[in-house]
């Protein structure tokens, strides 16, 4: 049995080792995977007792997916975390902290975009004091007006402000990774059960609900984007041209930007006269 000792905490140690010649219930050899074991030596009255507990981290995940690749990936991530936190310098710790904060935000915010903002504010402004409130509001305005998901833009901005370009890489990967892993697992499972009749019936009910959930916030969003009777032709014409005329949104966006700049130039000309 080959193993590597990762760290020592008090009189107990955490060890990861790769089991060989272990057989599962069906009698076949177990696929490789790290066992997460713990050895604790403790003193009973007079005698030194050694207690070894061993438990697999993987079974629930293994039940979910049979893919060996995903298991190995998770194992390596756990090992890497322990190894990395045990050996790194303070500067490395800052990068790691940046990664972990945005990993947490990415893992626990449902609904994306606007739902994430209060959580990001709490972490970045209140807990970590990386930005003050004014900076945060400015940053939000920038993140919303640039292409790409708002949460990613926010993460990249905070990372860059704090530790430069390399910091933005850490925070960016941090916010992408949770949903990446989760959706990958779902894709692996879901592609197999797609033809399942029960799943199909469930999704027959869900599909109209999805459309309703997209349509419902339109009124509120329209108000906050400053849509009024004067400029309501903009969203209407955009919706009709993309939906009925099947014009690519790329051209619509380019046209909107050009129109805005054109209007600005025109009013500036007339102001001068």
């Amino acid at each position: 049995m080959s193993y590597c000792r990762i760290g020592r905490l008090g009189n107990s140690s955490i060890t990861f080792y790769k089991p060989r010649h272990v057989f599962d219930i069906n009698g076949g050899p177990q696929p490789s995977g790290f066992v997460f074991g713990r050895t604790a030596d403790y003193k009973d009255i007079g005698t030194l007792k050694s207690c070894h507990t061993e438990f697999r981290l993987i079974p629930p995940v293994r039940l979910l997916i049979e893919s060996r690749l995903a298991i190995v990936c998770i194992d390596f991530a756990i090992c890497f975390h322990f190894y990395y936190t045990a050996t790194m310098s303070t500067q490395k710790k800052q990068y790691w902290e940046l990664f972990l904060v945005f990993f947490k935000i990415g893992a626990f915010t449902f609904g994306g975009g606007y739902a994430m903002i209060p959580l990001i504010r709490k972490e970045v402004v209140e807990k970590k004091l990386w930005l003050d409130d004014d900076e945060f509001m400015d940053m939000l305005a920038i993140a919303q007006s640039m292409p790409g998901p708002i949460s990613l833009n926010t993460a990249l901005f905070v990372g860059n402000k704090r530790l430069g370009f390399k910091g933005s890489l850490f925070s960016g990967v941090g916010i992408i990774l949770p949903s990446f892993i989760l959706i990958l697992l779902i894709a692996m499972v879901f592609t197999r059960f797609k033809e399942n009749l029960v799943i199909e019936r469930i999704f027959k009910g869900i599909r109209p609900a999805v459309v309703a959930l997209i349509a419902a916030p339109l009124l509120g969003l329209g108000k906050s984007a400053g849509v009024n009777l004067k400029n309501i032709w903009i969203p209407l014409s955009v919706a009709l041209s993309v939906w009925l005329l099947k014009i690519s949104p790329v051209y619509v966006i380019l046209a909107a930007i050009l129109l805005g700049i054109g209007h600005y130039l025109f009013t500036r000309q007339t102001m001068k006269k």
């Binding site: 007006s145 997209i214 349509a215 916030p217 339109l218 969003l221 329209g222 984007a225 400053g226 849509v227 400029n231 309501i232 903009i234 969203p235 209407l236 014409s237 955009v238 919706a239 009709l240 993309v242 939906w243 949104p249 619509v252 966006i253 909107a256 930007i257 129109l259 805005g260 209007h263 600005y264």
Partner: peptide, 14 residues
């Protein structure tokens, strides 16, 4: 942004 913002509402509607 003055035109793009309302246009984005249109995109969501579409």
């Amino acid at each position: 942004l003055s035109v793009l913002k309302p246009a984005i509402i249109g995109l969501i509607a579409s």
